[in-house]
Nucleic acid binder design. Sequence first.
DNA 1: GTCCTGATCCTCT
DNA 2: GAGGATCAGGACG
Length: 192
Amino acid sequence: MILQKDFYEQDTIVVAKQLLGCYFVHEIPELAVGKIVETEAYIEGDPANHAYKGITPRNKPMFGQSGNAYIYFIYGKYYCFNVVTGKVGKGEAVLIRALEPVTGISIMKSRRHQDNLYKLCNGPANLVQAMGIPKEYNGRSITDRPLYIVKKSFTKQEKIQSSVRIGISNEEARSLPLRFYSASSRFVSNIP
DNA sequence: GTCCTGATCCTCT
DNA sequence: GAGGATCAGGACG
């Protein structure tokens, strides 16, 4: 079952936690699937949020419909993938930080030039590359094919761990524990 | 226009 | 654990 707008419209922190264990799917040019094991929430009034100082050409997608993609370019090399969350106009989003590769592992390995399964999707820019997500998806909805997230199976509930977000220097922002990850997963990125 | 910084990653040591 | 790559956005003038 593909997660729809009503799911992403919930409170951003709730969405960030609930996305753990869900399956991130990209069907083009061939099926690639990863289980989400790490996310970060970026909320209203948060100095680390790109949308903190209001709408600009870059962060505009964050002010669009929940369930849209916000893909940004960083450090001259990398793209990171977010899904817009919460009520429209708040400028909130969840950053997908790490996946456990499930399907399409060989194409992920070739796109990443990396054979180690644990290093295929262990970071926001790495997973964008492994999943083959183009920047053209920026601002588009992810509630339908070819790019979407599927609800988790409830066979086993993952234990959720939280921490300070990665790569944030702002002191006020560092006081917020808005990084969430599966406590038992070997596929998460850095541990602070 | 210039300057600085960054929601990162990789390569060393 | 530290440092560099590399460029767009945003602040400033």
